[in-house]
Design a protein around this nucleic acid. Structure first.
Lengths: 197, 197
DNA sequence: GTCTATAGGCAGATAGAC
DNA sequence: GTCTATCTGCCTATAGAC
């Protein structure tokens, strides 16, 4: 039986996060309101406050779930994808899938609005980037060791460049509504890393 | 004689743009208000509306001036800097200077908020990226021709990657408050382009 | 060109009934 | 767990005096 609006539902907290997540990714944390979420779910604002006391708490829950899902996706890549180049490609595809939905990376969006965020949220945003960087560093070390990847400098620096390049490619591609613009950049990035010196 | 708040000033429109520009770059278009600007200038909100009818008009003037200054900076690079690698380095330094002021690129910030912008502003944002891309494409062509730059694919694709990488490096470096994080990425990017195949 | 005063709306948030 | 009703404050914007 399909869920319907306007009635008690199980899993309301998760449905709230689903809607709020999309709104933040598309409009920014300062570009959506409790009223937007409530309207879309067919509930009222006080019902939202029951589940998430304030916008700061909602935002924090949003990043935490997003980071957990992202970490899970990285685990699945580790479990199912063989070889550093293919892992990097799968990593870029995670971003591409977000962009295809006309969304920005949640934490990329929050990074833009960083100076206006409730303080509780800022640490969690940083942690997301740290996690990505750590995972990429590991993949880069692996690829350098088995000679499938070639790059100058430390693996940490290269990881930071990859995160930045993908976040920026998303950022710029979105106004153009052009996923290919992103794909071209990510393909180039990967080609540079796999090309022998 | 220094200017003082609370009195009639020449150049009020430009002073408004100065304050608004910084606020947008640091807090986003949805993260600042007329009250913020008025308070900082020691004038009232209606005075702001006299010069810029609404937030959309102010935003449009903001991007237009920013794009004009950016184009001017690119002209100066063309006039004073010799060689494609040095020009790319000077280009990256433009971004670095913005970041040092704890600001995001104005158009990078607006790209994040793109879906919430007044429609008049969206075209101008796009034009900024198009201008950057065109200038970079020209520099890349020049460098490829005189063999000072080496890259795979079209110069347009490479230009798009550079814009994205620099915007993204700014985006991520800002929460860390770490200009070196940006500099490392831009140095790597340039090194990759100057490295012989 | 800048002011005071104010309109009208929406923001985040709470009290208290059911 | 969700509602109605409401508070307070800030938002963009305008009228009209100086």
């Amino acid at each position: 039986m399909a869920t319907r609006a306007g009635r008690n539902e199980i899993n309301t907290p998760a449905r709230i996060l689903d809607v709020a997540e999309r709104l933040v990714q598309q409009r920014g944390f300062n570009g959506f309101s409790y009223a937007d979420v409530a309207k879309e779910l067919g509930i009222t604002k006080p019902a939202l406050h029951y589940h998430y006391a304030g916008k700061a708490e909602l935002g924090d829950a949003l990043i935490t779930r997003y980071a957990a899902r992202f970490a899970q996706a990285l685990d699945e890549i580790d479990a199912n994808v063989v070889g550093a180049p293919a892992k990097l490609d799968a990593y870029a595809t995670l971003y591409e899938d977000v962009l295809r939905d006309k969304r920005m990376c949640l934490c990329g969006m929050l990074a833009a609005e960083y100076q206006t965020l409730p303080k509780a949220m800022t640490k969690t945003v940083i942690r997301f980037f740290d996690d990505s960087e750590r995972w990429l560093t590991h993949v880069l070390d692996q690829g350098r060791q088995d000679q499938t990847l070639h790059f100058a400098g430390t693996s940490t620096d290269a990881a930071r460049m990859i995160v930045g390049a993908l976040e920026g490619a998303m950022l710029v591609a979105r106004p153009y509504g052009d996923v290919d613009r992103f794909r071209t950049t990510s393909a180039h990035l990967l080609a540079d890393l796999t090309k022998p010196n």
